[in-house]
Amino acid sequence: MIAEKVPTPPAPPVAAPTRLIESADIFRGQNEILIRHAGAIYRMKITRQGKLILNK
């Protein structure tokens, strides 16, 4: 009796690591920046408590 070879499924693709960006690199000493995304302008602010707020 000859055993049939069962094909092994291909390995799942390896996801690229998520990028980590320091907020200091984005804000560069400012408390507010503007971000353009898909044609819309967003405002990101650092609050007095050090939190981030994103508004459209």
Rank of each mutant, 00 (worst) to 15 (best):
residue 1 M to F: 09
residue 1 M to Q: 08
residue 1 M to K: 08
residue 2 I to F: 01
residue 2 I to S: 09
residue 3 A to F: 13
residue 5 K to R: 14
residue 6 V to T: 15
residue 6 V to W: 01
residue 7 P to G: 06
residue 7 P to C: 05
residue 7 P to T: 04
residue 8 T to D: 10
residue 8 T to H: 05
residue 8 T to G: 07
residue 8 T to P: 01
residue 9 P to E: 12
residue 9 P to D: 08
residue 9 P to T: 08
residue 10 P to M: 07
residue 10 P to L: 09
residue 10 P to K: 11
residue 11 A to V: 09
residue 11 A to N: 06
residue 11 A to C: 02
residue 11 A to K: 15
residue 12 P to V: 08
residue 12 P to T: 06
residue 12 P to D: 06
residue 13 P to K: 11
residue 14 V to C: 04
residue 14 V to G: 02
residue 14 V to Y: 01
residue 15 A to T: 13
residue 15 A to L: 15
residue 15 A to V: 12
residue 16 A to C: 02
residue 16 A to G: 07
residue 16 A to W: 06
residue 18 T to G: 08
residue 18 T to P: 08
residue 19 R to Y: 01
residue 19 R to W: 02
residue 21 I to F: 10
residue 21 I to K: 03
residue 21 I to L: 11
residue 22 E to C: 02
residue 22 E to T: 02
residue 23 S to M: 11
residue 23 S to V: 15
residue 24 A to M: 06
residue 24 A to Y: 02
residue 24 A to E: 13
residue 25 D to I: 05
residue 25 D to W: 09
residue 26 I to H: 04
residue 26 I to E: 03
residue 26 I to M: 08
residue 26 I to T: 09
residue 26 I to W: 01
residue 26 I to F: 04
residue 27 F to H: 03
residue 27 F to N: 01
residue 28 R to N: 11
residue 28 R to V: 11
residue 28 R to F: 01
residue 31 N to I: 02
residue 32 E to D: 10
residue 32 E to S: 15
residue 33 I to L: 06
residue 34 L to R: 13
residue 35 I to H: 05
residue 35 I to M: 09
residue 36 R to A: 12
residue 36 R to E: 15
residue 37 H to P: 00
residue 37 H to V: 03
residue 37 H to G: 04
residue 37 H to R: 14
residue 37 H to T: 05
residue 38 A to H: 13
residue 38 A to F: 10
residue 38 A to T: 06
residue 39 G to T: 07
residue 39 G to P: 06
residue 39 G to Y: 00
residue 40 A to Q: 14
residue 40 A to D: 09
residue 40 A to N: 12
residue 40 A to H: 13
residue 41 I to R: 11
residue 43 R to F: 05
residue 43 R to G: 04
residue 43 R to A: 09
residue 44 M to Q: 06
residue 44 M to E: 03
residue 44 M to K: 01
residue 44 M to C: 12
residue 44 M to F: 04
residue 45 K to T: 13
residue 45 K to F: 01
residue 47 T to G: 04
residue 47 T to F: 04
residue 48 R to I: 01
residue 48 R to S: 10
residue 48 R to E: 13
residue 48 R to C: 00
residue 49 Q to E: 15
residue 49 Q to L: 11
residue 49 Q to I: 05
residue 50 G to Y: 12
residue 50 G to T: 04
residue 50 G to K: 05
residue 51 K to E: 07
residue 51 K to P: 02
residue 51 K to R: 13
residue 52 L to R: 05
residue 52 L to V: 11
residue 53 I to N: 08
residue 53 I to E: 12
residue 54 L to W: 01
residue 54 L to E: 04
residue 54 L to P: 01
residue 55 N to P: 00
residue 55 N to G: 10
residue 55 N to M: 13
residue 55 N to C: 10
residue 55 N to L: 13
residue 55 N to A: 14
residue 56 K to M: 07
residue 56 K to A: 14
